[in-house]
Amino acid sequence: MAAPADQPLLRVEGLGVAVRRRAGALPILDDVSFDLAADETLAIVGESGSGKSMLALAITRLLMPPENYAVSGRVEFQGTDLVALPAAAMREVRGRGMAVVFQEALNALNPVLTVGRQIEETVRRRDGGDAATARREAIRLLDEVGIPSPERRLGDYPHQLSGGMRQRVMIAIALACRPALVIADEPTTSLDVTIQSQVLALLRDVRRQNGMSMIFISHNLGAVAAIADRVAVLYAGHVMELATVDELFAAPRHPYTAALLAATPRVDRPEKLAAIGGAVPRFDELPPGCRFAPRCPRAMPACSAAVPTIRAPDGEPGRRVRCIAPLP
């Protein structure tokens, strides 16, 4: 079912995820909203512990075990709300509508099954068909993700491949789903820098060639600048800023975004890096009001009075910022 042209592929609205504990629910993600158009790449950036990976798992409903999480809000994918979808219908969405490229492919691939088997089962789950067809498709996919002599790699186990190869296999598995949306969750974390850029380029290319949309989760602003159309900045479970890549890098509106950019090494501005003082607050010790206020150089008493709503800054209807006094 194709979404009408005026409707985004994915619309996340007021998404909240809380971990159920004996001591009461602990909110992690709160009021997360964004749209993703067809053929678009949205980057989610944030420090470790900001809730990025949980966002990917909440969209795909892969938070395990489900009873430990309370999910609220809406995740509308191709016009269907996934939050309320029965488990069987959700399985149809997974592996068909959307797929995930997980970080650390060594752990994300089954150690006792061959690479071929893990791709082929994805193909057969998607298309049915016989083993020979699935095998041909697996070879084609391995070739597409740039693995040399793919028919010989089918019989290999994950531990026999290099880190970069494993991540390529992970991407091949995601492609085997032929999804409309691929979520890449820090796909380059455990890789060498040179391999990182190769995998990044591969992701960008296969996304373009297959006309997929992508959510690219990363803490690496350099990678984000290279691959994304728009960026959502996540901090302690809140979206702090949402803008196009160009807007965001040219003029951050949220003090946190500005601090994040200042802490990123850049070739064109080789001045000293500015670390952000303090650390991301723990989710059981969230400050009142703006969650960034305790570390914010521009904080004022009003910041801690109430959680700022996320809204368009003056004169920029396409952007969103969660700050009562955005940067000019």
Partner: peptide, 13 residues
């Protein structure tokens, strides 16, 4: 709880 089990679920199995 292993990650490859999550991958298997991701495939829609």
């Amino acid at each position: 709880p292993e990650q490859y089990i999550r991958t298997a679920r991701m495939k829609g199995l």
